[in-house]
Design a protein around this nucleic acid. Structure first.
Lengths: 252, 252
DNA sequence: GCTGGGAATATGTCGGAGTAAATAGGGAGA
DNA sequence: TCTCCCTATTTACTCCGACATATTCCCAGC
C-alpha cells in the first residue's frame, strides 16, 4: 500500500476527463501551445522566438514558466537557445518526431498527409517483422494477452476509446512477445500516432471494414508459431489500415 | 562545428578540446548526471528522487537548475513528478529510448548487451527495408551523396571520428533517398547509437573486417535500382556489424 | 473505522545579478 | 580612402534565492 508502485502517471490519475485538452501543468500548456505552433509550420525552422520577457508578458506567465516550456521543447530537439542569439527553431531533421508528445502536436492541427504516409510506411516495415519475431518467441502469457485484447475489441468497437485501447493492447502484446525493448518503444510511439489517425477516420465516418477477422488471422499465425504467415497477415492488416486512412483523408 | 557548446563547470579554460564531455549548460550537465544514473540502473523504476532542495544542495546548484534538469528528464519520459509525492522514476516502457540523448546516456556507462541486441535487431529490420525503398526512389543527387560518403570512408577509416561520420553520412543518404521522414528520424537515432557501439568496438580493438566492399555492394544495388539486392546487401552489412559488436562485448 | 485539519513538500512566480556573444564603433595599416 | 581587426557596448539568455500557492500525506478527533 505505501511502498507499492502504483503506476499513476499524470493521465491515468485523472478521471480521463480532459484527455484532449492541453492538460498538465502551466509550462506543459505553454509547451503544447508552442509545440503545435511549430509543428503546424507557424514558426518555420530558422525562425527566432526572440524575447524571453516579451513572450512571457504576451502569454501572461512568468519567465520561469516560459523558460521551462522552452526546456521541454529543447529536450525534444525542436528549438535551441543561445545567450545572445535568441531561441531559434531547429531544422526538421533535428526534431524528435517519434516522441509521443511531438507526435500528438503534429496531429493536433491538420495532419500532414505526407507525414502520415511515411508513418504508415514505417509501420508496414516494423509491424510485420515484429509479428514474425512474436511468432517465434511468444510464451503462453503473451497469447493470453492477445486473446484478451481481441475479446475486448469484439465487445467494444473501434468507434469507442475503449475499443481503440484494446486495439493498442493487441499490438502491444505482440510487441511484448518480441522480447525487444527498442521495438517496444518504437511501436508505442507509432501506436499513439495510429490512434490519432483512427480517431480521424472515425470523424470522417470512414470505418467500412470489420477489422476483427484480420486481427484473428494474425493471432492464429502467431499462436501456431508460423512466422511467415504472421508477417503476411500483419502486412495485410497494415495495408488495409493505410488504405482506410488515405481514403478518409482524401474525403476530407 | 555547429555544436560549439562547451561545459562551463567551474572555470575550465579548456580550449574546447573536450568534445565528449557532459556538454551544454549547467542544467544540461545535471540532466546528464541524473540521466546516466537512471539509465545505468542506479535509480530503479519506482524509486523516488525525493527532496528538491536536498538534491539542489547536494549538487551545489540552485533549485532552478535542478528543476530545469528534471524538466528535461520529464520531457524524455524518464521521470514524472507530482506535488508532494516527489519525483518518481517511470517504468522502462515509458522511457523514450529512441531519443538521441537518452541513447547517449544508455551508452555512457556499461551498455546493456540485451539492449544492444534489441537495437541491432531493430536496425536489421529497418535498414534493409530502407535500402529497398531507396533503390526504388533514389534520384541522382542521392547517389552522389552516397558516393561522396563512400570516398570519405575510404580516405579515413572507422577508427577516426571523421570516418564514422562518413559512415553515418552514407546511411543517412540512403534514408534520405527513401523520401520518408519517419524513417529518417528513426535511423538518425539508431545511427547515433551505432556510433557509440563502433567507438566501443574500437576501444576493444575489434575491427577485423574491412567494411568498404559491403558498403559498395549496397551502393551498387541501389544505383542499379535492384530493390531485392539492395535489401539483401544491407542485411549482410547489418549482420556483420552485429557480429563484430557481439564479439567485442564478449571479449570485454 | 471514518472524516477533517494541519504539516510537509512540490509547483508556480518574481525580479535581480551574472555572463556570453553579436553588433557597432574606432583605430591602424595598406 | 578603403579594408581589416580589435575593443566596447548592448542584448538576451542563464542562474539564483525568496516568496506564494496548491496538493497530498499523516494524524488526531469523532
Amino acid at each position: 500500500m505505501s511502498e507499492a508502485n502504483f503506476v499513476n502517471d499524470e493521465e491515468s490519475a485523472r478521471p480521463a476527463d480532459e484527455a484532449r485538452g492541453p492538460g498538465r501543468r502551466l509550462h506543459g500548456a505553454i509547451a503544447h501551445k508552442l509545440g503545435t505552433a511549430i509543428l503546424s509550420g507557424k514558426y518555420a525552422p530558422g525562425d527566432i522566438l526572440s524575447g524571453e520577457v516579451a513572450f512571457a508578458e504576451e502569454l501572461q506567465v512568468s519567465r520561469s514558466a516560459y523558460r521551462e516550456a522552452i526546456q521541454v521543447l529543447s529536450a525534444k530537439g525542436l528549438v535551441a537557445s543561445r545567450p545572445k542569439a535568441g531561441t531559434r527553431v531547429l531544422p526538421r531533421d533535428r526534431w524528435n518526431l517519434l516522441d509521443p508528445e511531438v507526435l500528438g502536436w503534429a496531429f493536433a492541427g491538420e495532419p500532414d498527409i505526407e507525414f502520415v504516409r511515411s508513418l504508415f510506411e514505417l509501420r508496414a516495415i516494423v509491424e510485420p517483422a515484429a509479428a514474425r519475431l512474436a511468432a517465434q518467441r511468444r510464451e503462453k502469457h503473451d497469447l493470453k494477452a492477445m486473446k484478451d485484447a481481441l475479446t475486448a475489441m469484439r465487445r467494444h468497437t473501434l468507434t469507442t476509446e475503449a475499443g481503440r485501447a484494446a486495439d493498442r493492447d493487441f499490438h502491444n502484446a505482440i510487441l511484448q512477445a518480441t522480447r525487444n525493448d527498442a521495438l517496444l518503444v518504437l511501436s508505442a510511439s507509432i501506436g499513439a500516432a495510429v490512434n490519432w489517425t483512427t480517431q480521424f477516420k472515425q470523424r470522417a465516418r470512414a470505418l467500412p471494414r470489420n477489422p476483427i477477422p484480420d486481427h484473428v488471422r494474425v493471432y492464429d499465425a502467431i499462436a501456431a508459431g508460423d512466422a511467415a504467415a504472421a508477417a503476411e497477415a500483419m502486412n495485410v492488416l497494415v495495408d488495409l489500415a493505410l488504405e482506410d486512412t488515405r481514403s478518409a483523408m482524401e474525403k476530407k
